[in-house]
């Protein structure tokens, strides 16, 4: 379906799903943007956010349909409800955008992020790091005599919590993928 072909009741659109009054409270929304995988499409999406002063908390992108040349951009953003509606409408205007889904309002969704952590240390700290990693179900993917690299998957909050615990134990580097998210159910 065309990104601009909007059915009544759809949440993919600024006009029809207004709440009675706009609040000034900032909200965090996860948007899934299905785009044509063509050169420059990511620049269009990112340029929209920077050009109009919107926030990007995290952004992931990869081709999800090789035959249809479709990519899925998952972007986590914050803003007042009016700004969130405007972001969705502006994304829908981009010619190479096929669909915009607001996973935060369209129903329950599953959010996952992968991160790898390098923790450097020895003695008790090294043992404690390994013990905590076990509790968080983080895997050791590399080890030297004085360092570990842990791999952890989960909701962003879980990864934040793990990072907080690792910091006093010698956390030196973090690489995170950003959020990937899907709606639950069929």
């Amino acid at each position: 379906m065309s990104a601009l072909h909007i059915k009544k009741g759809s949440t993919r659109h600024s006009a029809y799903n207004l709440r009675p009054t706009f609040s000034d409270q900032e909200e965090r929304h996860t948007l899934a943007v299905l785009v044509e995988n063509e050169p420059g499409v990511l620049a269009r999406v990112i340029g929209l956010f920077s050009g109009r002063g919107y926030n990007i908390e995290s952004l992931t992108v990869a081709e999800v349909d090789h035959t249809g040349h479709m990519s899925r951009i998952t972007v986590v953003t914050t803003g007042t409800p009016q700004v969130i509606e405007q972001i969705k409408a502006q994304l829908g205007r981009i010619v190479s955008v096929h669909e915009v889904h607001d996973l935060t309002v369209e129903g329950d969704s599953v959010e996952r992020e992968l991160a790898i952590f390098k923790v450097v240390g020895d003695g008790d700290k090294r043992v404690e790091a390994l013990r905590l990693a076990d509790i968080f179900r983080a895997n050791v993917v590399d080890s030297t005599l004085n360092s570990f690299i842990f791999e952890i998957t989960g909701a962003p909050e879980k990864i934040d919590a793990f990072a907080d615990l690792m910091r006093p134990l010698g956390l030196t580097e973090v690489a995170r993928t950003g959020v990937a998210a899907l709606l639950r159910g069929s």
Binding site: I6, H13, L18, F22
Partner: peptide, 16 residues
């Protein structure tokens, strides 16, 4: 253009 609606002024009857 759906993005014109509710961009700056709140609309009671939006027609795209």
């Amino acid at each position: 253009d759906p993005s014109s609606i509710n961009k700056v002024i709140r609309i009671d009857i939006p027609i795209v």
